[in-house]
Amino acid sequence: MADSHAKMTQATPQEIIISVLAGLFAPLLAIFLIVMLVLSIQDKHLPDTTSEAAQKATLDRIKPFAHLVALDANAPKVEKSGQEVFEAVCTTCHTPGALGAPKFGNKGDWGPRISQGYETLIKHALEGIRQMPPRGGDGDLSDTEVARAVAYMADAAGAKFKAPEAAAPAAPAAAAASAAKPDPSKGKAVYEANCAVCHATGVAGAPKMGDKAAWGPRVSQGYATLYSHALNGIRGMPAKGGNAGLSEADLANAVGFLMTQGGGKL
Rank of each mutant, 00 (worst) to 15 (best):
Asp250Arg: 04
Phe161Trp: 08
Asn253Gly: 01
Lys80His: 10
Thr225Asn: 12
Asp183Pro: 01
Ala174Asn: 06
Gly262Tyr: 04
Ser40Met: 14
Ala175Arg: 10
Ala163Asn: 04
Gly264Cys: 03
Pro182Met: 01
Ile114Asp: 00
Thr95Ile: 10
Ala249Arg: 07
Ala154Leu: 03
Ser247Val: 03
Val146Thr: 03
Ala170Trp: 02
Asp48Thr: 02
Ala157Ile: 04
Arg113Asn: 06
Gly111Trp: 04
Ala173Tyr: 07
Ser185Gly: 12
Ala249Lys: 09
Lys212Arg: 12
Ala254Cys: 08
Lys160Ile: 09
Gln131Glu: 10
Asn194Met: 11
Leu71Ile: 09
Gly236Pro: 13
Leu68Glu: 09
His199Ile: 00
Tyr118Leu: 12
Ile31Ser: 14
Asp109Ala: 02
Ala254His: 07
Thr95Ser: 12
Ser220His: 02
Val38Cys: 14
Gln116His: 10
Thr92Met: 11
Leu266Thr: 08
Leu141Val: 00
Gln221Asp: 08
Arg235Ser: 11
Leu121Tyr: 06
Gln42His: 12
Pro133His: 00
Glu248Pro: 10
Arg135Phe: 03
Gly264Met: 00
Val89Ile: 05
Arg235Leu: 13
Ala6Asp: 12
Ala200Ser: 13
Tyr227Ala: 09
Lys162Thr: 14
Glu248Met: 11
Lys186Ile: 10
Ala196Pro: 00
Gly82Gln: 00
Glu79Pro: 07
Leu21Met: 13
Pro133Arg: 07
Glu87Lys: 07
Glu52Tyr: 15
Asn74Glu: 11
Lys240Ile: 04
Thr225Pro: 07
Ala147Tyr: 01
Asn74Ile: 07
Ala189Asn: 11
Phe65Gln: 15
Met36Tyr: 15
